[in-house]
């Protein structure tokens, strides 16, 4: 089942970075966040939720070194995208795109840290 979790981690990093770069380009072009980008943000959040739930289910038998840190990360990682989404929704300028882009970068980086805590790189 290790490969399923690994695939989920990499998918989240991939989609998260895609959203980050795309909204970053929008910000550079003085564009507010578009509708498809908002849908992508919802998809990222859904994937993050799936990732956290799978992590919690598999946690008991995993034997990872820092379970408390892993749980803290898997909960905290759910917060940035809704925050960025809400600000991108009310701030219909390039700054809204910057908010969502930053949130997307953060969750991609946090996912890499989650994967590291899971022992994927060791």
């Amino acid at each position: 089942m290790r490969t399923v979790i690994a695939a989920l981690f990499y998918a989240v990093v991939g989609v998260g970075l895609t959203l980050a770069v795309w909204t970053g380009i929008s910000a550079a072009r003085h564009r507010p966040t578009g509708e498809i980008q908002m849908v992508l943000a919802i998809a990222v959040e859904a994937a993050l939720l799936a990732q956290s739930v799978v992590g919690w289910i598999r946690l008991p038998g995993s034997g990872i070194a820092e379970p408390v840190t892993f749980v803290a990360y898997s909960i905290g990682i759910l917060a940035p995208v809704p925050l960025g989404f809400q600000l991108a929704r009310i701030e219909r300028t390039r700054w809204g795109s910057i908010c969502l882009s930053f949130a997307a970068v953060v969750v991609a980086v946090m996912t890499l840290r989650l994967a590291q805590l899971w022992g994927l790189f060791s």
Binding site: L83, G84, L87, I90, E91, T93, R94, W95, G96, I98, C99, F102, A103
Partner: peptide, 9 residues
Amino acid sequence: TGPRRALIT
């Protein structure tokens, strides 16, 4: 409002 909202994020 924009820069402040980015800072809030």
